[in-house]
Nucleic acid binder design. Structure first.
Lengths: 202, 202
DNA sequence: GTCTATAACCGGATAGAC
DNA sequence: GTCTATCCGGTTATAGAC
């Protein structure tokens, strides 16, 4: 019934590379089939539809991204560098052999006017993870909250941390989207802004 | 031979709304035809191809965007507010009845793996205009250049102004792309960061 | 002369049958 | 794994209405 593990990996490799560099709509399913070296029947046995394949490729990519990011965080020496590690991770992730032109998740969100549920879910999960992780990384960097400021967002971080986290999220998102304007765009600008924001949040 | 002015406008209205909200690939040419209330023959008399229609719609949108932005700049009271006016313009532009979910130019760049020349040109023109205008708006905000700093980028602004301009470009781009993550996203975050950057550039 | 309506062509894409 | 039914999208041709 199910397809072989190695076959699934080859299909996901092909899907990842083709969908997220050339675009989903622009990539015929035949191109994925050919790249993966499987037959159409095999693909449709493993994945009920093109959309399901997209969702599965996004899911795997999300896990790889979190791995890359965690590794960058682990290399960092202090709280500030841990927060800035997201930019190292972006550099690392972009330098991978197969990759998207900018961001697979934003790209998918952009392609679908309204995405099918499985795809929308994958995209939303990525944004949520980015936001909550950035807020947590921002927490140790902000000045301790004042006594008369009791507001807390849902995730338990105080509002200064969530603000800095959301600012970092905008920078990350901006850095990714800048790659659409200039393909060679690097993280220097976003990183520089982040340093200024961190300094001013202390 | 040529098509009537009003017919052209109706076609561009339809193209703008459909292409940039639902996506270009996702919008069949028939949908544009129906919305505009013209026949296929008329469309193809006015525009040689779907891509040409895309490029023309982008061109018109670019002009409208610059108009909106200029109006926002004209309303501003001082140099700092003039630089921040781009965020007012983003708010104004987004509140228009027909609009894209995020940014027509970035969206088009994202859709085409490699865009046809006419489309690529329209997208590039938008990025270039954004960058050079933001650099110029940043110029009066930066500390006067020191004597031993003679570097100047091509556009004649000094490197501090171009840096601040490029930072603003990243914020604008990030604000636009954030609308993909949360549809209701507002410019507050980007604007706040911009203020911090301006303060620290003085 | 500008437009509409209709329909047909053709490449390509999904999906499923064999 | 191949092959094919079916559909859909972009484009063009024809004929006629205002």
């Amino acid at each position: 019934m199910a397809i072989r593990e190695s076959t699934e990996q080859r299909l996901l490799d092909a899907a990842d590379d083709l969908f997220f560099t050339r675009g989903i709509a622009a990539t015929p399913i035949d191109a994925v089939i050919e790249r993966a070296g499987v037959s159409a029947a095999t693909l449709y046995r493993g994945f009920p539809s093109k959309e399901a394949l997209v969702a599965a490729a996004l899911e795997r990519r999300h896990l790889e991204w979190i791995e890359t990011w965690d590794a960058a965080i682990a290399r960092a020496a202090d709280d500030e560098e841990r927060a800035l590690a997201v930019f190292d991770a972006l550099d690392d992730f972009r330098d991978r052999p197969i990759g998207s032109r900018w961001c697979a998740f934003l790209g998918t969100a952009a392609e679908y006017g309204d995405a099918p549920p499985e795809v929308a879910e994958a995209v939303r999960r990525d944004s949520d993870a980015l936001r909550s992780r950035l807020r947590n990384l921002a927490a140790p960097l902000v000045a301790p909250r004042s006594r008369d400021d009791r507001r807390r967002p849902d995730d338990g971080t105080d509002h200064r941390a969530s603000r800095l986290g959301d600012e970092l999220l905008l920078l990350v998102t901006g850095d990714l989207a800048m790659r659409l304007r200039e393909p060679g765009h690097r993280t220097d600008t976003a990183r520089g802004i982040a340093r200024v924001l961190i300094a001013s949040a202390r």
